[in-house]
Write a protein that binds this DNA or RNA. Sequence first.
DNA 1: CGGTATATACCGGCAAACGTAATCTACCTG
DNA 2: CAGGTAGATTACGTTTGCCGGTATATACCG
Lengths: 117, 117
Amino acid sequence: MQEPTFLILTALATGPKHGYGVTQEVAELSEGTVKLRAGTLYGALDRLVEQELVMVDRQEIVDGRLRRYYRLTDAGAGKLAEQARRLRKHAEAAESRLQARPNVAFGFTATPFGARP
Amino acid sequence: MQEPTFLILTALATGPKHGYGVTQEVAELSEGTVKLRAGTLYGALDRLVEQELVMVDRQEIVDGRLRRYYRLTDAGAGKLAEQARRLRKHAEAAESRLQARPNVAFGFTATPFGARP
DNA sequence: CGGTATATACCGGCAAACGTAATCTACCTG
DNA sequence: CAGGTAGATTACGTTTGCCGGTATATACCG
C-alpha cells in the first residue's frame, strides 16, 4: 500500500467523507505536504472499494452536483491499523540507525574524500 | 519514495553494504516481511545512485564474483531522516484516529447493518 | 554430480500514482 | 453581467518503480 492510499484510509478513520473532503483532510493531516490530485484520489478510492477496505456510505445531490460519501469497512480499519504499525516500525528502525551514525548530525558535516558537494 | 527504497536506505544507514547484504539486512529489520527481489533491489540501487542518495563505496572480487559496496551519501542520510519523520507522523495520525473510532477496537465487533463478513 | 548459497545483470509486464483537462453549478467581485 | 474561484466528479494518457523470472558464475556440501 502506498502513501496516498494510506492517507486516504486515515482520513476516513474519523468518519465518512466525500472525495473532495478526503483531499482536504489529507492535506491537513500531512501538514500540507500531500495534495491529492483527482486522478490519484478517485483511482485509489475505486480500488479500495473493490478491495472492500472502503465502501460507499451514501450519496447526495447538492446544488445539482453529486456528492458521494465513503467510509471505512471493518476490514479497512484493520488494514490501516496493521499498516500504521508497520510504518511506525520502519520509521523507528531508520531513526535509531541514523542516530548510531556518527557524521551528518545536523545537515552537512564531513563529506568523505572524493564526494561532491 | 516507496517502501523498498526506504528500507534500502535504512539498511545502508549502519554502514556500507553490498547488494546481497542489503537484501538480508532488509529482511531482518522488517521482521521477515520484506524480501527484496533482485529486480527490485538493483533497480532501486541504480536509481538511488543516479539521485545521489547512495554511492558506490568500493568493489571487490571475491571468489571471482563481483561484490559492489554501496553507502549513503550525506544527502541520502538527510532524505532518510526526513522520510522517517514523515512516516512516523503518518503512523501516529492513523493510530490516534483509529483510537478515536469507537467500534472495531480489537479485531471484530459491530459490523453495521448490511455489511458482509 | 546435483542442489544450495552467494552475487549481480537484464528485461518485460503491470499496478498505482501523476498530471491535466473537461464538465457542471453556485457564488462573489469588479 | 462577465469572469474568476470553489466545490465535486469523470476521464484519459504518461511515467514511475516494483515484480518476477531468467541468465551467469563460483564455491561448498552431501
